[in-house]
Amino acid sequence: MMSRRRIVVGAAGLGALILILILWRVFFAGGDEPALLTADVTRGDIEQTVEATGTLEPKEMVSVGAQVSGRLETLNVEVGQVVRKGELIAQIDAQTQTNTLRTAQAELANMQAQRASQQATLAKAELSFRRQQAMVPGEATSMADFEAAEADLKSARAQLAVIDTQIQQARVGVNTAEINLGYTRIVAPMDGVVVAVVTKQGQTVNANQSAPTIVILAQLDVMQVKAEISEADVIKVDAGLPVYFTILGDADHRYNASLLQVEPAPESIVDEVNSTSSSSSSSSTAIYYNALFEVPNTDGKLRALMTAQVSIVLARKKNVLLIPSSALGAKAKDGTYSVRVMGAGGRMEQRQIRIGINNNVSAEVLSGLKSGEKVVVGQATEATASSNSGGRMGPPPF
């Protein structure tokens, strides 16, 4: 009987324990505080930047065109070729310009011959006038003959002046024809590299309306980067700030430079001026301002129209206390921020700190924290709760 009673009592006790565990699970376990993620207060470098997308362009780029019409007889360059200033690039058929020059030269020669003839006429008129003038005192001639000789002299002089003017016009015509003949020789206006050939050999060009482009020359030893900065960021940017960029083909290499200028108006201002509905277009279109800087290209890796991922450095500090920006709480009126600090034994405390640079990833700590302390950055998920260095917060299990 005693054995049976002990068994009954033991079974009842075990049942009660099981019931207590079930009740705890139901009413208490679900109320555990969520696990928290923490991060160490560390030392490191931080910078605040404005990010932009830019385009690489040659510092100097010239479209070499034709100023006269005609067939392109020879093309002496190809894409990628290095040329020097004054070097012959192409030759346009010069027959028309040559004939025009010969016609102008013949016209000049004709005017010069007429001038020689008119000079003889003037000399004859001067002799006749002097004879009449000498005979007037002795009344050996009539006043009518004297006045006629004087009029002939004036007419001869005027005619010579007209011919002199025509000679000047003819000389201008010869000079213009010589220039146009020289335009049939397309020469390089500067040292550079041929980056594009627009007109092919044998093609006819027409310069009556606009100068057709033959080739495009560029100087590639220095590249200019034109970065588009949004209107929200442009007020933070000034000339002289350090800047760096990477290209898509070599994201690990940074090119460093200094910002030269920020253009005062966006490129779209031209469209705005020409548009009849500028007010409606400006309200729906994003506004970007061009920031310009230059970078050496001695190895030739940088090419025209490459895309550059640009970072303009607004502030930069080295070896300072850092915490994740996600650890920052509300900003107080005195400029401090609240953070939750995890102490020994999982004890958490609220603390006010002052920060410096904040790039939305990391924040510089000016005061309120020490290196090695832990700050709470958020709640852990089920996957990260087991690895959380701060441990779980809540009632311990039975």
Rank of each mutant, 00 (worst) to 15 (best):
L19H: 05
G378H: 07
T336I: 09
M111F: 11
V243A: 03
A123M: 06
S362P: 00
A120V: 06
L108A: 08
R5G: 04
R157M: 13
R347D: 06
A232L: 12
E349S: 13
F293V: 08
Q159D: 15
I216L: 06
Q97K: 13
A116K: 07
R25V: 02
G31K: 03
L75F: 08
I269T: 10
M342N: 11
Q91K: 12
F27L: 01
Q97G: 14
A39R: 10
D32Q: 08
A52V: 05
Q261C: 10
L19F: 13
Q309E: 05
N208T: 15
F398H: 10
T98D: 15
D221P: 00
E126Q: 09
A196E: 03
D299H: 08
E147Y: 02
L260M: 10
E78T: 11
M135K: 10
P395L: 06
T49M: 04
L328A: 09
V215Y: 02
I46P: 04
E139N: 13
K370P: 14
T96W: 01
A123E: 07
Q133H: 08
V174N: 06
A286H: 06
S367Y: 12
G13Y: 11
A149Q: 03
E364T: 09
Q379S: 11
I179A: 15
A140Q: 07
E294I: 11
A106H: 09
N110S: 14
P189I: 04
D221K: 00
I186T: 07
G70L: 12
V68H: 10
A151G: 05
N297A: 12
